[in-house]
């Protein structure tokens, strides 16, 4: 059996998925995406915070693969992630679709360990409105502060 430390260092085979749950009808009716956007990721155990808010802080490490996708609360109403704006020194997200569909997801690799949270911006297309909606609150990628100190 390998020692525990080696197991901990092994990179998970799945990407860190950041899922945006959007209530498109409420967002369109109230013209307020902030109150109708709920962000989650698969790294809660690693220390991600802000679950269920538009200001999710995802705990990531250099080399992690990130994947952003969307779950609409009303499957009849169109929602898609239109853009991700983030410092290209940290990550350069690319837009992809699930093979054989037009359902969009974005992926990126984390280029560096972060000492401070790196805020980024998500934009969404809702319904038939041509202009993307961008929430005011901003999510962030955050490093493991404690681990960073230990490495010095």
């Amino acid at each position: 059996m390998p020692p525990k430390s080696r197991q901990a260092e092994r990179r998970p085979a799945r990407p860190v998925t950041i899922t945006a749950v959007v209530d498109p009808v409420a967002a369109l009716a109230s013209e307020n995406l902030d109150d109708n956007l709920y962000l989650y990721d698969t790294n809660r155990i690693a220390g991600s915070s802000g679950f269920g808010t538009p200001a999710l802080h995802s705990r990531v490490r250099k080399g992690d693969t990130l994947l952003w996708n969307v779950i609409p609360l009303e499957c009849e109403t169109f929602v898609a992630l239109a853009d991700i704006e983030i410092d290209p020194r940290i990550a350069e997200p690319t837009r992809k679709v699930y093979p054989g569909t037009d359902i969009v997801f974005w992926t990126a690799e984390v280029k560096q360990d972060l000492t401070e949270p790196a805020l980024y911006r998500l934009s969404f297309l809702l319904g038939t409105v041509g202009t993307p909606f961008t929430p005011n609150a901003r999510p962030a990628l955050a490093g493991a502060a404690g681990e960073g100190k230990e490495r010095r």
Binding site: V21, A26, Y40, T42, R44, I45, I71, L73
Partner: peptide, 28 residues
């Protein structure tokens, strides 16, 4: 009513407590 499960953690911890997020379209 949509129920979103953090399946990986739920399987690891063998509980849905802390690994379930509920939504409905009646917040307004």
């Amino acid at each position: 009513i949509i129920v979103l499960f953090d399946v990986e953690n739920a399987l690891k911890e063998r509980t849905l407590a802390g690994n379930t997020y509920w939504f409905d379209n009646m917040k307004l």
